[in-house]
Deep mutational scan, measured.
Amino acid sequence: GEDLPLPPGWSVDWTMRGRKYYIDHNTNTTHWSHPLESGPSSG
């Protein structure tokens, strides 16, 4: 998808195989999909 801006506290990194993933430092979790690309989340 597009390179959307990341929310505060997020960063992007790549695996050893070159796969892009996103790090949420607020909750110390990692995600394969961009936080703003996922569907609407409630709460």
Rank of each mutant, 00 (worst) to 15 (best):
K20A: 05
L4A: 10
W10D: 01
S42V: 13
D24T: 00
E2V: 11
S33D: 09
M16Y: 14
T27Y: 03
Y22T: 00
T30V: 15
H25S: 08
S42Y: 14
E2M: 10
T15S: 06
H34W: 06
H25E: 06
R17S: 15
P7L: 03
G9V: 00
L4C: 11
S33R: 15
D3F: 09
H31R: 07
N26S: 09
D13G: 15
S38L: 12
G18P: 00
P5A: 11
T15D: 15
G9K: 03
W14K: 08
P35N: 02
K20D: 00
G43Q: 12
N28W: 06
G18K: 04
S11Q: 06
L36K: 06
Y21A: 01
S11N: 05
G43V: 12
T27A: 04
T30K: 14
L36A: 09
W10H: 00
E2A: 11
E37M: 14
D24G: 01
W14Y: 15
G1V: 12
N28G: 14
H34E: 02
V12R: 05
S38T: 11
T30P: 04
Y22D: 00
L6N: 00
K20F: 04
W14F: 14
G43C: 14
L6G: 00
T30W: 15
N26H: 07
G9E: 01
H25R: 06
T30Q: 08
D3C: 15
E2N: 11
G43I: 11
W10V: 02
G39S: 12
Y21D: 01
M16S: 15
H31P: 00
M16N: 14
R17L: 14
V12S: 06
P7H: 01
L4Q: 09
H31N: 03
P40L: 12
P7R: 00
D13H: 15
L36H: 07
D13E: 15
R19A: 07
P8A: 10
G1L: 11
M16R: 15
G39N: 12
S38Q: 13
I23E: 01
V12N: 01
Y21Q: 02
M16T: 14
P5I: 07
P40S: 13
T29H: 04
Y21W: 04
D24A: 02
S38H: 11
G18D: 02
T15M: 02
D13I: 08
D3W: 09
V12H: 05
T15Q: 02
M16K: 15
S38I: 12
P35W: 03
Y22R: 00
E2T: 12
P40H: 11
T29C: 05
P5Q: 09
P35G: 02
R19I: 14
S41E: 10
T30I: 15
D24V: 02
P8E: 09
W14A: 06
D13C: 15
T29G: 02
R17A: 15
Y21N: 00
V12D: 04
T29Y: 02
N28F: 05
N28T: 04
T15G: 04
S11I: 05
M16D: 15
W32P: 02
R19Q: 13
G18A: 03
N26Y: 06
W10E: 00
P40K: 12
R17Q: 15
Y21H: 01
P35E: 03
L4H: 08
H34K: 03
Y21T: 01
W32H: 03
S42L: 12
N28E: 07
W32V: 03
E2K: 11
S41T: 13
P35K: 03
I23N: 02
K20Y: 03
H25N: 08
D3N: 10
S11W: 02
V12Y: 10
Y21S: 01
L6H: 01
H34Y: 06
T27F: 04
E37Y: 12
S41L: 13
R17K: 14
P8M: 08
I23M: 05
P8W: 07
E37W: 13
G9M: 03
L6D: 15
E2Y: 10
S11Y: 04
T29K: 06
T15E: 04
I23K: 05
W32K: 03
S11V: 07
G1C: 15
H25W: 11
L6V: 05
E2W: 09
R19T: 11
T27N: 08
T29F: 03
W10Y: 01
N26D: 04
P5G: 09
L6F: 02
G9R: 02
S41Q: 13
H31K: 04
G18Q: 04
T27V: 00
N26P: 02
G1R: 11
G18S: 02
W32A: 03
W14I: 10
P8Y: 08
L4G: 09
S41P: 14
P8G: 05
Y21E: 00
H34M: 05
H25T: 07
T30S: 08
D24N: 10
H34A: 05
L36S: 09
D24M: 01
M16Q: 14
I23C: 03
L6P: 15
T30Y: 15
D3I: 10
D13M: 14
I23R: 08
P7W: 02
S33H: 15
G39W: 12
W32F: 07
N26M: 07
S11L: 04
S11C: 15
L6K: 06
M16V: 14
G18L: 05
P7F: 01
P35R: 02
P35S: 02
L4P: 15
G9L: 01
S41R: 09
P5E: 13
V12G: 04
T27Q: 05
I23P: 00
N26E: 06
P8Q: 08
R17H: 15
G18H: 04
P5H: 09
N28L: 05
D13Y: 15
E37K: 13
D3H: 10
P40Y: 12
S38Y: 11
E37I: 13
W14H: 09
T15V: 03
W10S: 01
P5K: 08
P40C: 15
H31Q: 08
E37A: 14
R19P: 00
H25Q: 06
E37Q: 13
N26Q: 06
D13P: 01
H25V: 04
D24W: 03
S38K: 14
S38V: 13
S33Y: 13
W14L: 07
T27E: 02
D24K: 03
N28I: 02
S11R: 05
P40D: 12
H31T: 07
G43L: 13
E37P: 07
K20I: 09
S42N: 13
V12W: 09
L6Q: 03
L6R: 07
D3E: 13
H34P: 05
G43Y: 12
G39T: 12
S33V: 14
H25D: 04
P35V: 02
P7A: 02
S42A: 14
Y21G: 01
E37N: 10
P8R: 06
T27W: 03
H31V: 04
G39P: 14
T29N: 02
W32L: 05
P35H: 02
K20E: 04
M16F: 14
P40M: 13
T29V: 05
H31L: 04
N28M: 08
S41Y: 07
N28V: 03
G1N: 13
G1A: 12
L6I: 06
G18C: 08
I23F: 07
G18T: 02
L4N: 09
D13T: 08
T27M: 05
L6S: 01
S42D: 13
T27H: 04
R17P: 05
V12E: 07
G43D: 11
G1Y: 11
G1P: 11
T30A: 10
H34S: 05
D13N: 15
T27D: 04
H34L: 09
S11D: 07
R17W: 15
R17G: 15
G9I: 01
T27R: 05
N28C: 15
S41H: 11
W14S: 06
G39L: 13
P5F: 07
G9S: 03
L36I: 06
S11F: 05
G39D: 11
G9N: 07
R17C: 15
P7N: 00
P40E: 10
T15H: 04
T29R: 06
P35Y: 02
R19E: 14
G1E: 12
N28Y: 05
D13R: 15
K20T: 04
S41N: 10
H25Y: 06
S38W: 11
T27P: 01
W32N: 03
T30H: 11
T15K: 02
N28P: 02
L6M: 05
K20W: 04
K20M: 08
P35T: 03
W14R: 09
R17V: 08
S38M: 13
N28Q: 09
E2P: 11
K20P: 09
G1I: 12
G18E: 01
V12Q: 07
K20N: 01
I23W: 06
S38P: 11
S38R: 12
S33K: 14
N26T: 09
P8T: 07
Y22A: 00
M16H: 14
K20R: 09
P40T: 12
D3A: 09
W10I: 00
E37T: 10
V12F: 13
S42H: 13
G18M: 04
G9W: 06
M16A: 15
L36P: 05
